[in-house]
Structure formats: C-alpha cells, structure tokens
Design a protein around this nucleic acid. Structure first.
Length: 485
DNA sequence: AAAAAAC
C-alpha cells in the first residue's frame, strides 16, 4: 500500500503481551536520530500503549487506540510518524519538496500546542519539520511557517480549514492522519470539519484515532474513517485512574466556593486544578480565591488565547498554585505531578468526570480527586458512579464553617471584621448595589453569604436510578450520512 | 444546562 519500506519491530505482539516490562524503545528499530531524542529525555521503556501501538503503526496499519492522556499516547503515534517519514526524508529546502505528510488533529488549542512540543522534541535530531496551527492567534506567523514547508502539522480543525481556504497549506500529500481525543472532537461538534478535512486527503493513507472513551459514536466514527483498524486498549474503557483517591463532599449550593477555599487551605494544597462548569463560575472562583490571598488564575474559552497560555504557563512554572478551569482543560493537558484535582461543580457529562480526575495520578503517581456537590447534583453523581462502576466515598469536611473563612485564625482582622458585619441577619432578598463594606478591588461577594450550617454531609446518598443514555441524535445522523431534512 | 472551536 505504501511506497515505503516496511519497518517492523523485532518483537511480535505476544512477546509484548507476555513481558511488557522487558520491552525497550531500542527494540523497535527506530532510526538513531529518534533513539537519540528518546535517550536525551531519559526514555528507555515504552508505556503499555507505546509497546502495543508502535510496532503496529510501523507496519502501516490503521489503529484505533483507547487510551487516556498521560499513558504516553502522544509518543505512541509521534515516533512511528517520524520513523515512517524519515524513510523518505528530503533535505531540499524548497517548500514543494516539503509537503505536509502527517497531520495531527486535536480538539483544543492547548492540546495541539502540547502535542506539537512533543513532536518537535522527538524530531530534534532529524531534518523533519513540524508546526502547530490553531485559532485565536495571528494567521501570519503560522502562514509563513506553513509556506516555508513542513512535513508534520498539528492543528485544531477550524484554523486548519481556514489555512486550507487561504491556500496556505495543501493536504494532498498527507500520508498519515491522527485524530487525537476523537471523542472530544465529536462532543464538540467537529464532525463536519473532520469530514471536510478528510475529503481533502488522499484516499490512501494511514489513520490513527485515539479516544479516551469507547462510545458507540466513536466506534462508528472509526468504522467510517479507518481502514481495517487494529484496536488497542490499554485500560478498561471508562476506567478511572487506579491510583486516584476519590471523595465527594456534599454542601449547600451557596457554600460550594467556601468549601473549595476550605479544602485548599486545610490541605495546604499546592498545584491544584479546580474545575468549574461555567466560564463565569471559573472567573469568579479564581477572583475570590485570589482575594483571599491564594495564587489563583482562571482559564477558559472567554479568555484571550494569550491569557490562556499565560495562565497555563504560570501554573506549569509554579507561579500559580490554583488553576480554575472549565472543561477546556479537562482533557489532554499534561501537567506533571499534579497531586490533586477539585471539582467545584460535578460535570454535566459523566465522561468528563473521568477526564477531569485523569489530570491527577499520572504516570504511576498517586492523586486525589475531590468533588463538591449539592442537593441538585445527586443525579449527576449517580450518573458518574454508574459510568465508573464504583461508589465514590462521601466525605465530611472537618472544621468547615461556611460563610467566608470566618473560622480560620490564620486570616487577619480584615476578614474577621467583614465576617462579623456580614453575620447580621438579613432577609432572604438580595441587596443589589448597596454594599457598605470597603473593598480593595472588584471582588465577587460570594463569601458574603448568610451563615447556614451544612447539614447534609456524611451519609451516603441512596443510589438514584441511572439516567437513560442520552441519544446523540446529531452525531448519529451525521455519521449515518442522512440527516433528516 | 455548558463548554469548546475560524474569521
């Protein structure tokens, strides 16, 4: 099928299955330039997904991979891509001699950047060129890079199509296509874009699709876009990370923010991602935590791309301790050694819970996944527990007194004063625009809620009946090719 | 319900 020499691994699959711990990258017969890059980074043994996927991909087969990020997924497709492209490496400087031959599609901009960084690192000692294109940034630098000629492009679908329309890139020579986080791309409604992109590619190509979950929609997508794929599954579908300790705390809806702050202070947590279901909620929470002296920042889709990258960068550098994020950060982001994830809201989509808590407990490390929920979220919790096939322990927040940090001596008089003022009984109605309290800055008054003891933590809730599977009408119709008109 | 992604 390929014009390229067949590159096979010395290992057969059964060897790998039987003795995964014995396999080394050196056994894959990768080019010395690639091996050098691996050695540079101290990589000797492949992860399970790498051990399984690399030999198959090197044979030119299509692969459907079920694996979460943090399992070494990126290297599992990057290394074979580089190996196969190297077989036809071309040292000419002409862009025409550097057609795009491998395309990696990712659902979010941050993930695309991250994949691109990995690819660039593995390409370091080779003449191959790679670049990343994504929205929210000036077209021009991306255009220049594309026009100078690159073999490997990592992209978010929308911006890629934009470049295609502007004739900055031609996809007619693409021999390898990777759809990373395919389930996410479906969820985000990228199917039409994916279809358009795939229509621009040569019919004969190698396809790799990765997905953290294995829904019927994903299987259907695989069967329509992949040719005779080999399915690789490293962990059971929808399995939560084994080393992640989960707990849920039930609090009054109005006290969720207090509870998060309490957990952060009590545990003296460093480097935590807190997930919020809404962009506004994420911003508010970050602002509130920052007002209480924590190094917190928000990341979500209403932030400019620059702000998003700055926040992520600051978090990775340790300049920020708390990153309050929407599901823009739920999948893919690889932040090493994240000890804890907090769900400020339970996600509407149970699968997102798996993705969110998958941000911790990476690469063999242990992690904590703490979720806050209230009465109205019982159903969401039931859905999550059904999906992960386990009950999440209900915890009690020791010493938690909701209402604005008033029980914590570590805070100064300013807070105590404000708290006292706030304790005055109020009628249930909201006082809009009549805040008598001096404020340093624009601070969301979420900690100024009337005191009300939390009653409902501790007892495990009765398992609610599971929700019926949501029909994904749109996706199903598109995949069927015959949307009803 | 909400989030993400192209201008």
């Amino acid at each position: 099928m390929w014009g390229w020499p067949l590159l096979t691994s010395k290992n057969c699959m059964s060897d790998i299955e039987n003795t995964p711990e014995q396999v080394k990258f050196a056994d894959f017969g990768l080019a010395p330039e690639i091996q050098r890059a691996l050695t540079d980074q101290g990589y000797v043994h492949p992860t399970p997904i790498q051990a399984k996927a690399i030999p198959i991909l090197l044979q030119g087969r299509d692969v459907m991979g079920a694996a979460q990020t943090g399992t070494g997924k990126t290297a599992s497709f990057s290394l074979p891509i580089i190996q196969l492209l190297l077989a036809h490496a071309n040292t000419s400087m002409s862009p025409a001699r550097h057609p795009v031959r491998a395309l990696v599609l990712a659902p979010t901009r941050e993930l695309a950047v991250q994949v691109a960084e990995n690819v660039a690192a593995y390409c370091k000692h080779t003449p191959l060129r790679s670049t990343v294109v994504f929205g929210g940034m000036d077209m021009k630098p991306q255009t220049e890079k594309l026009r100078s000629g690159v073999e490997i492009v990592i992209a978010t679908p929308g911006r890629l199509l934009d470049h295609v329309e502007q004739k900055n890139i031609s996809l007619g020579q693409v021999q390898m296509l990777v759809m990373d986080e395919a389930d996410r791309m479906l969820d985000m409604g990228f199917l039409p874009d994916l279809q358009r992109i795939i229509n621009l590619l040569p019919k004969k190509r190698q396809n790799l699709m990765f997905s953290a979950t294995f829904s019927p929609e994903i299987k259907k997508l695989a069967s329509s876009f992949l040719t005779d794929p080999i399915t690789i599954e490293v962990a059971r579908s929808n399995a939560t990370a084994e080393r992640v300790t989960q707990v849920v705390y039930k609090v009054n809806e109005d006290h969720k923010r207090d509870a998060v702050a309490h957990i952060l202070r009590q545990r003296e947590l460093k480097q935590v991602i807190v997930f919020s279901n809404t962009k506004i909620g994420a911003s508010r929470l970050a602002r509130g935590l920052a007002a209480e002296g924590m190094k917190a920042a928000a990341i979500h889709g209403d932030k400019t791309q620059q702000e998003r990258m700055q926040a992520l960068d600051a978090f990775k550098k340790g300049e920020i301790d708390v990153l309050v994020a929407t599901d823009v950060a739920a999948r893919g982001l690889d932040i090493s050694d994240l000890p804890c994830v907090i769900n400020f809201d339970l996600p509407y989509n149970a699968e997102d819970y798996v993705h969110r808590i998958g941000r911790t407990g990476r690469a063999g490390a242990s992690g904590d996944a703490i979720s806050i929920y209230s009465d109205k979220d019982e159903r969401l919790l039931a859905d999550i527990e059904k999906l992960i096939k386990q009950t999440v322990p209900r915890g009690t927040l020791d010493g938690f007194v909701p209402g604005g940090f008033r029980s914590d001596e570590r805070h100064g008089d300013r807070r105590r004063d404000r708290t006292q003022a706030d304790r005055a009984p109020r009628s249930g109605e909201r006082r809009e625009g009549s805040s008598p309290l001096p404020r340093r800055e624009k601070v969301d008054p979420w900690f100024l809620k009337p005191y009300e003891p939390t009653r409902s933590n501790g007892a495990p809730a009765a398992a609610a009946p599971a929700a019926p599977a949501k029909p994904k009408q749109k996706v199903a119709a598109l995949l069927g090719g015959l949307p009803k008109g």
